[in-house]
Amino acid sequence: MNHQKHRGRSNTEPSRNRPREAMGEPRYQDLIRSLNHLFLETERDTEALTAAQRQRVIEEIKVLMNQHGVTIEDLSD
């Protein structure tokens, strides 16, 4: 019976802590564009979610007003 322990990474794998090359301007600009795109998408998603939530609340208010016989004029008092 051979009871060898598994050691994970082999010694031939490159180290994750090795020094990296400096990032060039084109790569930097590409990363910035990607981040800006991600932020815009997130903002649009948040706006769409907020609009959908607002619409659900409005519908709920309309139902409650109808159930209780409340009118717009009643709210202005």
Rank of each mutant, 00 (worst) to 15 (best):
A51Y: 05
V70D: 00
R56A: 04
L31H: 03
I72T: 04
R54H: 08
E59I: 00
T42M: 11
R9H: 06
E43A: 01
L35P: 02
N17L: 04
E73I: 01
E43P: 01
H68A: 05
E59L: 10
L75W: 05
R9E: 08
M65V: 01
D77P: 01
A51L: 07
R18W: 00
T71G: 00
A22Y: 03
R56C: 09
Q53Y: 06
H6R: 03
Q55T: 06
H6C: 09
E21C: 06
Q53F: 04
L75H: 00
D45L: 08
L40A: 09
I58V: 11
M1A: 02
R20D: 03
T46R: 01
I72D: 10
S15Y: 03
I72G: 02
I72H: 12
E21G: 09
V70N: 08
Q4D: 06
A51R: 10
E59S: 04
G8I: 00
S15L: 00
G69Y: 02
R20Q: 08
Q55D: 15
R16E: 10
E41C: 09
N11R: 12
G8Q: 06
T71W: 06
M23D: 02
Q55L: 02
A22V: 13
S15T: 01
A51K: 11
E13G: 07
G24I: 10
Y28A: 08
G24M: 09
E21T: 09
P19E: 07
D30N: 06
P19N: 07
R27D: 14
R44A: 11
E47G: 02
R27W: 04
R44Y: 05
I58E: 06
P19H: 09
R33S: 02
A51Q: 11
G69V: 02
R33H: 06
L31Q: 15
D77A: 13
L35W: 14
Q29A: 11
N2E: 15
V57T: 14
I58T: 15
T42H: 14
G24D: 14
P19G: 04
L40H: 14
R18C: 00
L35C: 09
N36M: 09
S34P: 06
E60F: 01
A52Q: 12
R56Y: 05
K5V: 09
R7N: 10
V70A: 08
G69S: 05
L64F: 05
E13R: 07
R18I: 12
R18A: 08
Q67P: 07
I72K: 03
E43G: 04
A51M: 04
Q29W: 00
M23C: 13
A48W: 08
E41H: 05
E47P: 01
R18F: 02
I58K: 08
R16P: 12
G8N: 05
Q4N: 12
Q29N: 07
S10Q: 03
G69P: 05
N11C: 04
L75S: 11
T46M: 04
D30F: 11
